[in-house]
């Protein structure tokens, strides 16, 4: 049976009705139209659905919506502030780190979470930080460049 929950998504309080088995990914995409978060495998293997849950990267396809109650959720749609892109988004454009783009939003969210906790990483740490996100187009090369560029102070 559907239950009502309140979720704080991109700093807005959202009221949604969900079935017990439904995931945060389902709520974002199908109930709230936040389709920047992608579904790539639905079993926590690809990283396309990565969002921030209390400032940590998680696979939204593995988070039951009902367990996200009371937590702060940030999706790709919440990164832009006052029409200005987040530095990670800017860096992905500048570095040419986007090809088909299907992994991009999840990748950016993983990078964002990682940089929140480690603002000046080594290349190896960057690679570990995005190791939960698969990309089939870029070989990760320009993605690592982008995260490196976004990690520079200033």
């Amino acid at each position: 049976m559907k239950q009502r929950i309140n979720l704080t998504i991109n700093e807005e309080l959202q009221e949604v009705f969900v079935e017990p088995h439904q995931t945060l990914l389902h709520v974002l995409r199908e109930e709230l139209g936040l389709i920047g978060t992608k579904k790539g495998c639905d079993t926590g293997g690809c990283g396309c659905c990565t969002v921030l849950l209390d400032d940590r990267a998680v696979y939204a396809c593995m988070v039951f919506a009902l367990s996200a109650q009371g937590k702060k959720i940030i999706t790709i749609e919440g990164l832009r502030e006052n029409g200005k892109l987040d530095p990670v988004q800017e860096a992905f454009i500048e570095a040419g780190a986007v090809q088909c783009g299907y992994c991009t939003c999840g990748m950016i969210m993983a990078a964002k979470a990682f940089l929140l906790h480690n603002p000046a990483p080594s290349d190896q740490e960057i690679r570990a930080g995005i190791a939960g996100n698969l990309c089939r187009c870029t070989g990760y090369h320009k993605i690592v460049e982008a995260v490196r560029a976004a990690s520079r102070p200033g």
Binding site: I76, R80, I93, G96
Partner: peptide, 22 residues
């Protein structure tokens, strides 16, 4: 010339144009 992809802005902000979204 090294140019930026025309679709990059849209894709880093959510990328709506995929068939999966229809």
């Amino acid at each position: 010339k090294r140019v930026l992809r025309s679709d990059a802005y849209d894709k880093v902000t959510g990328g709506r144009g995929y068939p999966v979204n229809v």
